[in-house]
Write a protein that binds this DNA or RNA. Structure first.
Lengths: 173, 173
DNA sequence: GCGCCACGGTACGCTTCGGACCATGTCAGC
DNA sequence: GCTGACATGGTCCGAAGCGTACCGTGGCGC
Protein backbone atom coordinates (compact mmCIF):
# COMPACT_ATOMS: atom_id res chain seq x y z
CA UNK A 1 0.00 0.00 0.00
CA UNK A 2 2.83 2.37 0.85
CA UNK A 3 5.21 1.36 -1.91
CA UNK A 4 8.91 0.69 -1.25
CA UNK A 5 9.68 1.25 2.40
CA UNK A 6 12.32 0.84 5.04
CA UNK A 7 11.52 -1.03 8.24
CA UNK A 8 11.66 2.30 9.99
CA UNK A 9 9.01 3.70 7.66
CA UNK A 10 6.81 0.76 8.51
CA UNK A 11 7.41 1.23 12.17
CA UNK A 12 6.09 4.77 11.99
CA UNK A 13 3.18 3.90 9.72
CA UNK A 14 2.18 1.10 12.06
CA UNK A 15 2.36 3.39 15.06
CA UNK A 16 -0.44 5.44 13.50
CA UNK A 17 -2.60 2.53 12.31
CA UNK A 18 -2.54 -1.21 12.92
CA UNK A 19 -0.37 -0.64 15.95
CA UNK A 20 -3.48 0.43 17.82
CA UNK A 21 -4.86 -3.06 17.79
CA UNK A 22 -1.85 -5.25 17.10
CA UNK A 23 1.44 -4.64 18.77
CA UNK A 24 4.66 -4.95 16.74
CA UNK A 25 7.92 -4.94 18.69
CA UNK A 26 10.11 -2.88 16.41
CA UNK A 27 12.86 -5.49 16.24
CA UNK A 28 10.36 -7.72 14.41
CA UNK A 29 10.04 -5.14 11.68
CA UNK A 30 13.70 -5.57 10.85
CA UNK A 31 13.77 -9.36 11.11
CA UNK A 32 10.61 -10.09 9.17
CA UNK A 33 11.50 -8.32 5.89
CA UNK A 34 14.75 -10.27 5.91
CA UNK A 35 12.77 -13.50 6.06
CA UNK A 36 10.33 -12.38 3.40
CA UNK A 37 13.21 -11.46 1.17
CA UNK A 38 14.68 -14.94 1.69
CA UNK A 39 11.35 -16.36 0.59
CA UNK A 40 11.41 -14.23 -2.56
CA UNK A 41 8.53 -12.00 -1.52
CA UNK A 42 10.59 -8.83 -1.20
CA UNK A 43 13.54 -7.20 -2.95
CA UNK A 44 16.07 -5.13 -1.01
CA UNK A 45 18.07 -2.14 -1.97
CA UNK A 46 20.68 -1.31 0.63
CA UNK A 47 22.32 2.11 0.64
CA UNK A 48 26.09 1.78 0.72
CA UNK A 49 26.77 5.08 2.47
CA UNK A 50 25.42 7.04 5.42
CA UNK A 51 22.57 5.38 7.25
CA UNK A 52 22.68 2.31 5.07
CA UNK A 53 18.90 2.26 4.85
CA UNK A 54 17.39 -0.95 3.56
CA UNK A 55 14.57 -0.24 1.22
CA UNK A 56 12.28 -3.18 0.61
CA UNK A 57 10.02 -3.55 -2.41
CA UNK A 58 7.36 -6.22 -2.80
CA UNK A 59 7.88 -8.69 -5.66
CA UNK A 60 5.28 -10.21 -7.98
CA UNK A 61 5.47 -13.37 -5.92
CA UNK A 62 5.02 -11.40 -2.72
CA UNK A 63 2.07 -9.53 -4.15
CA UNK A 64 0.45 -12.79 -5.20
CA UNK A 65 1.09 -14.38 -1.82
CA UNK A 66 -0.44 -11.40 -0.05
CA UNK A 67 -3.57 -11.48 -2.19
CA UNK A 68 -3.90 -15.23 -1.68
CA UNK A 69 -3.66 -14.74 2.05
CA UNK A 70 -6.29 -12.01 1.94
CA UNK A 71 -8.65 -14.30 0.04
CA UNK A 72 -8.17 -17.15 2.50
CA UNK A 73 -10.89 -17.58 5.13
CA UNK A 74 -10.10 -16.66 8.73
CA UNK A 75 -10.37 -19.56 11.12
CA UNK A 76 -9.07 -18.05 14.34
CA UNK A 77 -11.41 -16.22 16.65
CA UNK A 78 -10.09 -12.91 17.93
CA UNK A 79 -8.19 -12.89 21.18
CA UNK A 80 -8.54 -10.08 23.65
CA UNK A 81 -5.37 -10.10 25.80
CA UNK A 82 -6.59 -7.80 28.49
CA UNK A 83 -4.57 -7.80 31.71
CA UNK A 84 -7.34 -5.88 33.45
CA UNK A 85 -9.84 -8.56 32.54
CA UNK A 86 -7.59 -11.27 33.94
CA UNK A 87 -7.26 -9.36 37.18
CA UNK A 88 -11.00 -8.90 37.39
CA UNK A 89 -11.47 -12.59 36.82
CA UNK A 90 -9.53 -13.17 40.03
CA UNK A 91 -11.49 -10.51 41.90
CA UNK A 92 -12.35 -12.93 44.69
CA UNK A 93 -8.71 -12.96 45.67
CA UNK A 94 -8.33 -9.19 45.63
CA UNK A 95 -9.60 -6.45 47.92
CA UNK A 96 -12.74 -4.63 46.80
CA UNK A 97 -10.69 -1.43 46.85
CA UNK A 98 -8.35 -2.94 44.28
CA UNK A 99 -11.30 -3.80 42.08
CA UNK A 100 -12.62 -0.27 42.44
CA UNK A 101 -9.28 1.20 41.42
CA UNK A 102 -9.00 -1.22 38.55
CA UNK A 103 -12.39 -0.13 37.24
CA UNK A 104 -11.60 3.55 37.66
CA UNK A 105 -8.28 3.20 35.82
CA UNK A 106 -9.86 1.22 33.04
CA UNK A 107 -12.62 3.76 32.48
CA UNK A 108 -10.00 6.48 32.26
CA UNK A 109 -7.82 4.47 29.90
CA UNK A 110 -10.69 3.66 27.58
CA UNK A 111 -11.90 7.23 27.60
CA UNK A 112 -8.47 8.43 26.56
CA UNK A 113 -8.38 5.94 23.75
CA UNK A 114 -11.90 6.88 22.64
CA UNK A 115 -10.87 10.53 22.48
CA UNK A 116 -7.87 9.63 20.31
CA UNK A 117 -9.98 7.56 17.93
CA UNK A 118 -12.71 10.17 17.65
CA UNK A 119 -10.08 12.78 16.90
CA UNK A 120 -8.70 10.59 14.14
CA UNK A 121 -12.17 10.18 12.69
CA UNK A 122 -12.73 13.92 12.64
CA UNK A 123 -9.36 14.56 11.05
CA UNK A 124 -9.21 11.92 8.37
CA UNK A 125 -12.82 10.81 8.08
CA UNK A 126 -13.78 12.74 4.99
CA UNK A 127 -10.57 12.41 3.01
CA UNK A 128 -10.83 10.49 -0.24
CA UNK A 129 -8.66 7.37 -0.43
CA UNK A 130 -7.86 7.31 3.24
CA UNK A 131 -11.39 6.61 4.40
CA UNK A 132 -11.32 2.95 3.32
CA UNK A 133 -8.44 2.55 5.73
CA UNK A 134 -10.56 4.04 8.46
CA UNK A 135 -13.05 1.18 8.54
CA UNK A 136 -11.17 -0.71 11.19
CA UNK A 137 -11.15 2.38 13.36
CA UNK A 138 -14.87 1.90 13.78
CA UNK A 139 -14.36 -1.58 15.14
CA UNK A 140 -11.79 -0.19 17.54
CA UNK A 141 -14.24 2.45 18.66
CA UNK A 142 -17.02 -0.09 19.11
CA UNK A 143 -14.76 -2.18 21.29
CA UNK A 144 -13.75 0.82 23.35
CA UNK A 145 -17.33 1.89 23.93
CA UNK A 146 -18.27 -1.62 25.00
CA UNK A 147 -15.32 -1.83 27.37
CA UNK A 148 -16.08 1.55 28.89
CA UNK A 149 -19.70 0.60 29.52
CA UNK A 150 -18.63 -2.67 31.05
CA UNK A 151 -16.20 -1.07 33.50
CA UNK A 152 -18.77 1.54 34.45
CA UNK A 153 -21.05 -1.31 35.38
CA UNK A 154 -18.31 -2.92 37.44
CA UNK A 155 -17.73 0.38 39.21
CA UNK A 156 -21.37 0.67 40.17
CA UNK A 157 -21.41 -2.84 41.48
CA UNK A 158 -18.32 -2.31 43.59
CA UNK A 159 -19.94 0.74 45.08
CA UNK A 160 -22.98 -1.32 45.97
CA UNK A 161 -20.65 -3.77 47.72
CA UNK A 162 -21.21 -6.63 45.32
CA UNK A 163 -17.56 -7.64 45.31
CA UNK A 164 -16.07 -9.17 48.41
CA UNK A 165 -12.64 -10.52 49.10
CA UNK A 166 -11.75 -14.06 50.00
CA UNK A 167 -8.94 -13.74 52.49
CA UNK A 168 -7.76 -17.30 52.50
CA UNK A 169 -7.47 -19.62 49.59
CA UNK A 170 -9.18 -23.00 49.81
CA UNK A 171 -6.80 -25.73 50.84
CA UNK A 172 -9.03 -28.74 50.27
CA UNK A 173 -9.21 -30.29 46.85
CA UNK B 1 -9.17 -20.41 43.69
CA UNK B 2 -9.30 -24.09 42.83
CA UNK B 3 -6.96 -25.36 45.54
CA UNK B 4 -4.19 -27.88 44.81
CA UNK B 5 -4.26 -28.80 41.14
CA UNK B 6 -2.38 -30.64 38.45
CA UNK B 7 -1.48 -28.84 35.22
CA UNK B 8 -4.05 -31.00 33.56
CA UNK B 9 -6.75 -29.77 35.95
CA UNK B 10 -5.79 -26.22 35.07
CA UNK B 11 -5.89 -26.99 31.41
CA UNK B 12 -9.48 -28.12 31.68
CA UNK B 13 -10.53 -25.31 33.97
CA UNK B 14 -8.99 -22.76 31.62
CA UNK B 15 -10.79 -24.32 28.67
CA UNK B 16 -14.06 -23.36 30.31
CA UNK B 17 -13.09 -19.88 31.48
CA UNK B 18 -10.13 -17.59 30.81
CA UNK B 19 -9.31 -19.66 27.75
CA UNK B 20 -12.11 -17.85 25.95
CA UNK B 21 -10.22 -14.60 25.93
CA UNK B 22 -6.63 -15.61 26.56
CA UNK B 23 -5.11 -18.57 24.82
CA UNK B 24 -2.85 -20.96 26.76
CA UNK B 25 -0.93 -23.55 24.76
CA UNK B 26 -1.13 -26.57 27.05
CA UNK B 27 2.63 -27.11 27.07
CA UNK B 28 2.89 -23.79 28.94
CA UNK B 29 0.75 -25.14 31.72
CA UNK B 30 3.37 -27.75 32.48
CA UNK B 31 6.39 -25.46 32.15
CA UNK B 32 5.05 -22.52 34.13
CA UNK B 33 4.30 -24.34 37.42
CA UNK B 34 7.84 -25.69 37.31
CA UNK B 35 9.13 -22.13 37.12
CA UNK B 36 6.84 -20.90 39.86
CA UNK B 37 7.96 -23.74 42.06
CA UNK B 38 11.57 -22.75 41.44
CA UNK B 39 10.66 -19.24 42.56
CA UNK B 40 9.12 -20.61 45.77
CA UNK B 41 5.56 -19.74 44.82
CA UNK B 42 4.32 -23.32 44.51
CA UNK B 43 4.92 -26.64 46.26
CA UNK B 44 4.79 -29.92 44.31
CA UNK B 45 3.69 -33.34 45.28
CA UNK B 46 4.55 -35.91 42.66
CA UNK B 47 2.87 -39.30 42.70
CA UNK B 48 5.45 -42.06 42.56
CA UNK B 49 3.22 -44.64 40.92
CA UNK B 50 0.75 -44.81 38.08
CA UNK B 51 0.24 -41.57 36.20
CA UNK B 52 2.81 -39.68 38.27
CA UNK B 53 0.57 -36.68 38.53
CA UNK B 54 2.19 -33.51 39.78
CA UNK B 55 -0.06 -31.74 42.21
CA UNK B 56 0.88 -28.13 42.80
CA UNK B 57 -0.15 -26.12 45.87
CA UNK B 58 0.31 -22.39 46.25
CA UNK B 59 2.69 -21.30 49.04
CA UNK B 60 2.31 -18.33 51.39
CA UNK B 61 4.87 -16.49 49.26
CA UNK B 62 2.93 -17.35 46.11
CA UNK B 63 -0.31 -16.18 47.63
CA UNK B 64 1.29 -12.90 48.67
CA UNK B 65 2.85 -12.40 45.23
CA UNK B 66 -0.50 -13.03 43.56
CA UNK B 67 -2.29 -10.53 45.78
CA UNK B 68 0.43 -7.95 45.20
CA UNK B 69 0.07 -8.41 41.48
CA UNK B 70 -3.69 -8.05 41.70
CA UNK B 71 -3.29 -4.79 43.63
CA UNK B 72 -0.85 -3.37 41.10
CA UNK B 73 -2.28 -0.93 38.54
CA UNK B 74 -2.62 -2.08 34.94
CA UNK B 75 -0.60 -0.01 32.51
CA UNK B 76 -1.06 -1.93 29.29
CA UNK B 77 -4.01 -1.23 27.06
CA UNK B 78 -5.82 -4.29 25.83
CA UNK B 79 -4.77 -5.77 22.53
CA UNK B 80 -7.25 -7.21 20.10
CA UNK B 81 -5.30 -9.65 17.88
CA UNK B 82 -7.94 -10.09 15.24
CA UNK B 83 -6.76 -11.62 11.96
CA UNK B 84 -10.01 -10.62 10.32
CA UNK B 85 -9.45 -6.99 11.26
CA UNK B 86 -5.96 -7.07 9.78
CA UNK B 87 -7.34 -8.46 6.55
CA UNK B 88 -10.04 -5.83 6.46
CA UNK B 89 -7.42 -3.17 7.00
CA UNK B 90 -5.85 -4.28 3.74
CA UNK B 91 -9.20 -4.37 1.94
CA UNK B 92 -7.89 -2.13 -0.86
CA UNK B 93 -5.64 -4.96 -1.94
CA UNK B 94 -8.37 -7.60 -1.87
CA UNK B 95 -11.36 -8.28 -4.08
CA UNK B 96 -14.73 -6.97 -2.86
CA UNK B 97 -15.94 -10.57 -2.92
CA UNK B 98 -13.24 -11.48 -0.44
CA UNK B 99 -14.34 -8.69 1.85
CA UNK B 100 -17.93 -9.86 1.57
CA UNK B 101 -16.99 -13.37 2.49
CA UNK B 102 -14.83 -12.15 5.33
CA UNK B 103 -17.77 -10.20 6.75
CA UNK B 104 -20.16 -13.11 6.35
CA UNK B 105 -17.78 -15.51 8.09
CA UNK B 106 -17.14 -13.09 10.91
CA UNK B 107 -20.82 -12.53 11.57
CA UNK B 108 -21.31 -16.26 11.75
CA UNK B 109 -18.31 -16.73 14.03
CA UNK B 110 -19.40 -14.03 16.43
CA UNK B 111 -22.95 -15.31 16.49
CA UNK B 112 -21.72 -18.76 17.43
CA UNK B 113 -19.66 -17.32 20.22
CA UNK B 114 -22.54 -15.17 21.43
CA UNK B 115 -24.75 -18.26 21.60
CA UNK B 116 -22.12 -20.05 23.69
CA UNK B 117 -21.75 -17.16 26.09
CA UNK B 118 -25.49 -16.64 26.48
CA UNK B 119 -25.87 -20.33 27.18
CA UNK B 120 -23.22 -20.08 29.89
CA UNK B 121 -25.01 -17.13 31.42
CA UNK B 122 -28.29 -19.02 31.55
CA UNK B 123 -26.66 -22.08 33.05
CA UNK B 124 -24.42 -20.58 35.70
CA UNK B 125 -25.79 -17.06 36.08
CA UNK B 126 -27.82 -17.56 39.23
CA UNK B 127 -25.51 -19.86 41.11
CA UNK B 128 -24.10 -18.50 44.35
CA UNK B 129 -20.30 -18.26 44.44
CA UNK B 130 -19.84 -18.80 40.74
CA UNK B 131 -21.51 -15.60 39.66
CA UNK B 132 -18.59 -13.38 40.68
CA UNK B 133 -16.53 -15.35 38.19
CA UNK B 134 -19.10 -14.62 35.54
CA UNK B 135 -18.40 -10.88 35.47
CA UNK B 136 -15.82 -11.15 32.75
CA UNK B 137 -18.28 -13.07 30.65
CA UNK B 138 -20.24 -9.85 30.32
CA UNK B 139 -17.24 -8.07 28.89
CA UNK B 140 -16.79 -10.93 26.46
CA UNK B 141 -20.41 -10.63 25.42
CA UNK B 142 -20.16 -6.87 25.01
CA UNK B 143 -17.18 -7.30 22.74
CA UNK B 144 -18.95 -9.95 20.70
CA UNK B 145 -22.05 -7.80 20.23
CA UNK B 146 -19.90 -4.85 19.14
CA UNK B 147 -17.97 -7.00 16.69
CA UNK B 148 -21.13 -8.49 15.23
CA UNK B 149 -22.67 -5.07 14.71
CA UNK B 150 -19.49 -3.84 13.08
CA UNK B 151 -19.29 -6.68 10.59
CA UNK B 152 -22.96 -6.30 9.76
CA UNK B 153 -22.18 -2.73 8.85
CA UNK B 154 -19.27 -3.84 6.68
CA UNK B 155 -21.54 -6.31 4.95
CA UNK B 156 -24.06 -3.63 4.10
CA UNK B 157 -21.37 -1.37 2.75
CA UNK B 158 -19.90 -4.09 0.56
CA UNK B 159 -23.36 -4.70 -0.86
CA UNK B 160 -23.65 -1.03 -1.68
CA UNK B 161 -20.33 -1.31 -3.52
CA UNK B 162 -18.39 0.89 -1.16
CA UNK B 163 -15.32 -1.32 -1.28
CA UNK B 164 -13.27 -1.49 -4.40
CA UNK B 165 -10.08 -3.31 -5.22
CA UNK B 166 -6.77 -1.78 -6.15
CA UNK B 167 -5.32 -4.13 -8.72
CA UNK B 168 -1.79 -2.86 -8.78
CA UNK B 169 0.28 -1.69 -5.89
CA UNK B 170 1.96 1.74 -6.08
CA UNK B 171 5.57 1.50 -7.17
CA UNK B 172 6.62 5.09 -6.54
CA UNK B 173 7.86 6.07 -3.12
C1' DG C 1 -9.25 -59.30 26.52
C1' DC C 2 -8.73 -55.60 23.57
C1' DG C 3 -9.28 -51.35 21.55
C1' DC C 4 -10.51 -46.74 22.27
C1' DC C 5 -10.39 -42.58 24.48
C1' DA C 6 -9.64 -39.54 28.41
C1' DC C 7 -5.92 -38.63 31.23
C1' DG C 8 -1.31 -36.66 32.28
C1' DG C 9 2.82 -35.36 30.67
C1' DT C 10 7.63 -34.34 28.04
C1' DA C 11 10.55 -32.76 24.19
C1' DC C 12 11.95 -29.74 20.97
C1' DG C 13 12.49 -26.43 17.35
C1' DC C 14 10.83 -22.31 15.83
C1' DT C 15 8.95 -17.68 16.49
C1' DT C 16 8.09 -13.77 19.17
C1' DC C 17 9.38 -10.45 22.38
C1' DG C 18 11.52 -6.52 24.31
C1' DG C 19 15.29 -4.21 26.08
C1' DA C 20 20.06 -2.82 25.42
C1' DC C 21 22.92 -0.96 22.49
C1' DC C 22 24.96 1.59 18.48
C1' DA C 23 25.74 4.73 14.72
C1' DT C 24 24.17 8.55 11.61
C1' DG C 25 22.18 12.91 10.43
C1' DT C 26 19.73 17.51 11.67
C1' DC C 27 18.72 21.50 13.80
C1' DA C 28 18.30 24.89 17.58
C1' DG C 29 20.67 27.83 20.51
C1' DC C 30 24.67 29.65 22.15
C1' DG D 1 31.14 27.10 14.24
C1' DC D 2 30.26 24.05 18.30
C1' DT D 3 27.41 21.12 20.93
C1' DG D 4 23.92 18.64 22.72
C1' DA D 5 19.35 16.89 22.06
C1' DC D 6 16.53 14.36 19.27
C1' DA D 7 14.80 11.83 15.25
C1' DT D 8 16.45 8.39 12.22
C1' DG D 9 17.76 3.70 11.12
C1' DG D 10 19.34 -0.44 12.70
C1' DT D 11 21.53 -4.90 15.18
C1' DC D 12 21.95 -8.24 18.89
C1' DC D 13 20.59 -11.47 22.06
C1' DG D 14 18.62 -13.91 25.94
C1' DA D 15 14.22 -15.12 27.52
C1' DA D 16 9.65 -16.37 26.86
C1' DG D 17 5.96 -18.14 24.12
C1' DC D 18 4.11 -21.38 20.85
C1' DG D 19 2.58 -25.54 18.80
C1' DT D 20 3.20 -29.97 17.29
C1' DA D 21 4.72 -34.48 17.84
C1' DC D 22 5.15 -37.88 20.81
C1' DC D 23 4.69 -41.15 24.94
C1' DG D 24 2.78 -43.82 28.84
C1' DT D 25 -1.43 -44.88 31.98
C1' DG D 26 -5.82 -46.55 33.16
C1' DG D 27 -10.87 -47.10 32.80
C1' DC D 28 -14.70 -48.68 30.31
C1' DG D 29 -17.51 -50.60 26.67
C1' DC D 30 -18.02 -54.27 23.66
Amino acid sequence: MRGPSTPYDLKRAIGRSVGYFWNFPHAQLYAEPKRLQGAGFLDVHEEDTGRRRKIYTITEAGDAALRDWLAEPVKEHFELRDIAEIKLFFNELAEPDDVARLARDQIEQHERRIAEYEEMQRRYGGIEGVSSRMVTLELGLGMEYAAREFWRGVQERVERGEFSSMKRRPTAR
